[in-house]
Simulated assay, not measured.
Amino acid sequence: MSPPDSPWRPGREQIDRAFSWLSPAQRQELSGLLSLRRLTPGEQLFAIGDPADTLYVLVEGRVAVKKQTGWGRNSQVIALLSPPAPIGEASLVGAAQRKTTVEAVEETLLLCLPGDSLRLLAADQPALALTLVNYLLRITCLRLEQCSSRLARIL
Rank of each mutant, 00 (worst) to 15 (best):
L30Q: 07
A90C: 05
G88S: 01
S31A: 11
P84N: 13
G42L: 09
K67V: 14
D5Y: 11
K66A: 01
S20V: 09
S35H: 15
L92V: 09
P10M: 12
L45W: 11
D53Q: 10
L45P: 01
L36G: 03
G32K: 08
G72F: 15
L55P: 09
W8S: 13
V65I: 02
T40Y: 00
L33M: 06
G70V: 07
S82A: 12
K66V: 07
L22R: 10
N74F: 11
L45T: 07
W21M: 10
Q28Y: 10
L30A: 08
L33Y: 07
E13K: 03
L22F: 02
A64N: 04
I87P: 07
L55E: 02
E60P: 00
L81V: 01
Q44D: 13
V65Y: 01
A25Y: 04
D53T: 12
V93I: 15
S31M: 08
R17F: 13
F46G: 01
G72E: 15
W8M: 13
A18I: 05
F19D: 08
V63H: 10
G32E: 03
G11S: 14
Q14E: 14
A90T: 04
G72V: 14
A47W: 10
W21T: 13
R12Q: 15
L22D: 03
L34Y: 04
S31N: 07
A25G: 02
I87V: 15
V65H: 05
A90K: 06
G70A: 11
L81R: 09
A64I: 03
W71M: 07
A85R: 02
A25T: 04
S31R: 03
I78R: 08
D53P: 02
I15G: 00
I78Y: 08
R62T: 12
G61W: 00
G70M: 12
L80A: 03
A25V: 03
L58A: 01
